[in-house]
């Protein structure tokens, strides 16, 4: 997982631009006070998935309930949503398949992950388990939810897309499955955005600039921090 750490002294003059350039191709590298967490490709994949997700979400919600009807005006009306939702759903499914393959090796569950307690974690009080690597088990859980729910929503969405090609009973089942999948998505994405922004400051930049501070890494992902920096003190 970890590349060799680049000593801060190698770039004494301008650590800012150089780490940005480094972050285009490499990750898990420390420079100065920063560590590259997501290289450019990872970030681009994430935001492409996010874009298609948001389009699918905002075109699906006005079909889900007229309460969200105003969202349809963002795209030019409900008739536009009816086809854009299907195509953005397909695009999202393809993009998230690429994303799953891209992150596959980092997201492998290890026996230690079973010790993770989400409720306890969300209390933010206890010290982080020192054995937490680049992704904690909660992140892995979210990650593995993606292909499951995507498959659920994709497979139930196809008969809803083509009314004349599928039977009535199948489509009734699909309505239910599609809606349950949507609700799961909504709850999961609210949690994901919250944890990535307000709840854990310093996280969002890992998906924009691509880097985090060493202090952030030491707090949230101690084992990853040690692996990247070679620091064995903590």
């Amino acid at each position: 997982m970890s590349d060799a750490s680049v000593p801060a002294s190698a770039h004494p003059a301008a650590p800012g631009p150089s780490i940005m350039r480094l972050a285009v191709h490499r990750e898990d590298v420390a420079v100065g006070d920063e560590i590259v967490r997501h290289r450019l490709l990872s970030r681009v994949i994430h935001w492409v998935v996010a874009l298609f997700f948001m389009v699918a979400l905002l075109t699906g919600m006005p079909i889900y309930s007229p309460v969200f009807g105003w969202m349809a005006t963002l795209f030019g009306g409900l008739s536009v949503c009816r086809w854009l939702h299907a195509w953005s759903g397909i695009a999202f499914s393809v993009a998230s398949a690429v994303m799953v393959l891209h992150w596959l090796s980092d997201m492998k569950l290890v026996p230690h992950d079973l010790k993770f307690n989400l409720v306890q974690y969300m209390q933010f009080s206890a010290a982080e388990d020192p054995e937490i690597g680049k992704y904690n088990p909660g992140q892995k859980l979210f990650f593995w939810t993606i292909p499951l729910v995507t498959l659920m929503v994709l497979l139930s969405g196809i008969p809803l897309w083509w009314p004349t090609k599928f039977g009535s009973t199948l489509r009734q089942v699909c309505i239910i499955v599609h809606d349950v999948g949507f609700i799961m998505w909504f709850v999961a994405i609210v949690g994901h955005v919250y944890l990535g922004t307000a709840a854990e400051p310093g996280t969002f930049r890992s998906m924009t600039r691509g880097t985090v501070t060493k202090a952030w890494a030491r707090l949230h992902h101690p084992k990853w921090f040690r692996d990247v920096t070679g620091d064995r003190k903590e």
Partner: peptide, 26 residues
Amino acid sequence: LGFIAMGAALFGTLGHFMTVGPKKPK
């Protein structure tokens, strides 16, 4: 149920932020 879940997610995170707050490096 969907509306309850959506509301719970939104207000739950807000409540979490107001009671537990952000997790920052010391």
